[in-house]
Design a protein around this nucleic acid. Structure first.
Lengths: 229, 229
DNA sequence: GCGCACAAAATTGTATACAATTACGAAAAC
DNA sequence: GTTTTCGTAATTGTATACAATTTTGTGCGC
């Protein structure tokens, strides 16, 4: 059973699909993204594929090497540090704002989000869980009603996903859901200061759980990764 | 005397040229950027033009309306506030870092930059002066050795230029060079705290010098704006 | 004169054709 | 056996052709 809604796939939609695949660790850092190959897989021309790849390159998820092609980015250690330093600058204050502005409906939605995270972890779908845990941060930025900052955070989250793919060391399954749960409680209490502090330590925890020394890249084959997205 | 180096103009280079034109207020917010027209002006095909416009759209300097074309962005009041709030989150801490890391050579370069600003103001070239005053902030981010944050700041500076074009009220010529000079002194003293505080008040000053109520857009004609860039 | 309908022109969206560059592999030289 | 060279294949870069959509302008009816 294929897609019922077989609309002709725009460049934006394609870049979303690829971003999701990267975010869920189905596409490993360093994987070559050939234009013809992607075009065949998704049934679009290279024009569309190139636009999508350019878009991803702007988000630093893809590296374009002239006359060589597009590759899933492999952030260096320095870049990894920079990404988390930028997050440390943006997210705690944003969480503070969000805690003061959050509505009951948004609390419910956020709780549902956490539940979905737990469900994914329980099902063993680590890729999905990782994606959802990233989306949690983006939701907070949206609740803070800061679209500009939210866009930055979204990019940083995606890049963090690449960084995790490269530098993650712990194999613990429970990941970081406890931190999200603690944040929820601060939101429910509308405690801005506490939310800010929790977000800050959450980010520190995340970064210290990385091994920012060596790189271990293992490129993927496209079709294996993108089947059924 | 035309260009000696008549290399065939890449999409990246074209987007830089357009960004500069926007930054120097030669291209007003709302101006339509027709693909054929730009292609003729710069002697490239629409393929290149489209790639450049997409790039600018990612930086929020251009708005792409489907089947309508590309237009120089017209940030709403809310977006204007958001841009300055994001800058307030990023730039003071970055200035702090920069003050602690800056080398003598970088101090000299920064001072030369300020001199160039003054020269532009003195010549009455307000567009150039505005561009240089923006670059000053970007240089600081680079001195802080934070490429990721520098990229965000660069985008925010460009968008600020659009915001200034739309909402600037004062007609004072001396602009803000004093603030930059004060920052320089803090850098020379390697006083991180003072640099951070100065940057913060500088941004507050900038924002309060805007009239974030009404919009006054006056689109430009392309050829008038882009001749001799 | 005003408004609507429809046709023509212009503009953007997409696919494809061709050029330029790179990657690969076989054969020759050492 | 290893390395170099060169020709072919594959891939990316760019321009152009065609389709879809919007805009513009004309003429008709009222």
């Amino acid at each position: 059973m294929t897609d019922l809604q077989d609309a002709p796939l725009t460049a934006d939609r394609l870049s979303e699909l690829l971003e999701l695949a990267i975010h869920e660790h189905r596409l490993a850092p360093g994987t070559k993204l050939g234009e013809d190959e992607l075009g065949e897989i998704y049934g679009v021309s290279r024009t569309i594929v190139r636009a999508a790849l350019q878009s991803l390159a702007h988000q630093r998820l893809v590296e374009l090497r002239r006359n060589k092609g597009a590759f899933v980015a492999q952030p260096k250690v320095k870049e990894a540090r920079e990404v988390f330093e930028a997050r440390a600058l943006l997210e705690p204050r944003t969480a503070h704002s969000a805690a003061l502005r959050i509505t009951d409906a948004q609390i419910a939605a956020l709780q549902a989000h956490i539940d979905a995270e737990h469900a994914a972890i329980h099902k063993g779908d680590h890729g999905r869980a990782l994606y959802l845990s990233g989306q949690f941060h983006i939701e907070i930025a949206k609740i803070a009603d800061q679209e500009t900052i939210a866009a930055f955070i979204q990019q940083l989250i995606s890049r963090s996903s690449l960084i995790i793919a490269l530098y993650w060391q712990r194999r613990s399954a429970l990941c970081e859901s406890n931190a999200h749960h603690a944040l929820m409680k601060a939101f429910i209490a509308r405690d801005g200061d506490r939310a800010q502090e929790l977000m800050n330590s959450h980010l520190v925890d995340l970064m210290t759980s990385l091994d920012l020394r060596n790189i271990t890249a293992t490129p993927t084959t496209l079709r294996d990764a993108l089947v059924g997205s």
